[in-house]
């Protein structure tokens, strides 16, 4: 459902959108498929205010402390963190590779920018993902319209600013269509 399931409490600071936290664990032994992915992803909660965000966030393990390949996702309520969701189908994502040890801090800065509406791209942002892997970690931020270059450039520039990325950091944009076609993510 696309409706709001939670609301800010009395006196709390509302967010522009409600956001849902999701967690997924990769099972490397099984081939990637939509069905496996849906079985492995868990919705862990939705927040509607700054206060609820912190309350929730402070109870989560820092992504950098997770063991084994796993992902945290933070998506606008009602948007599933899947390529096939109607809000994602025509979209894509910016991907940033991180060496080990940086994921927790960068993830926090990225989601603060997202829930604080720092990207200034209207309805375009769908959600964000941190992916913990063996050799390196990845951040990604998903938007609705991969063909909208003004938007994707603005998202890239905002990310560089809020994460204070070195100029040498490689950022790659990938459409979900391409991800679906080559059936790969990281």
């Amino acid at each position: 459902s696309r409706g709001k399931t939670v609301s800010p409490g009395p006196g709390e600071h509302p967010l522009q959108y409600n956001y849902t936290f999701w967690y997924s664990r990769r099972s490397p032994s099984r081939p990637a498929s939509t069905q496996n992915y849906e079985q492995n992803i868990r919705r862990i909660g939705t927040v509607a205010s700054v206060e609820q965000f912190w309350k929730f966030y402070s109870h989560l393990v820092h992504p950098g402390d997770l063991s084994g390949p796993s992902d945290f996702h933070l998506f606008k309520e009602g948007i599933k963190p899947m390529w096939e969701d109607e809000c994602n189908r025509s979209g894509g994502k910016w991907i940033i590779r991180l060496r080990k040890g940086l994921a927790s801090r960068f993830w926090e800065n990225m989601i603060l920018a997202m829930v604080g509406e720092q990207f200034m791209v209207g309805e375009e942002i769908c959600g964000a993902v941190v992916s913990i892997r063996f050799q390196e970690d990845f951040l990604s931020i998903w938007n609705r319209t991969s063909s909208d270059q003004t938007t994707t450039s603005r998202i890239r520039d905002t990310l560089r600013r809020v994460l204070n990325l070195p100029a040498s950091t490689i950022m790659e944009y990938k459409t979900h269509n391409d991800s679906l076609r080559d059936n790969s993510s990281f």
Partner: peptide
């Protein structure tokens, strides 16, 4: 319409507010 914008500093300050504990 109006968008609800929060900068990083505000959000981090809110983290320590009693209601968010």
């Amino acid at each position: 319409g109006t968008r609800i914008i929060y900068d990083r500093k505000f959000l981090l300050d809110m983290r320590n507010s009693p209601i968010a504990q």
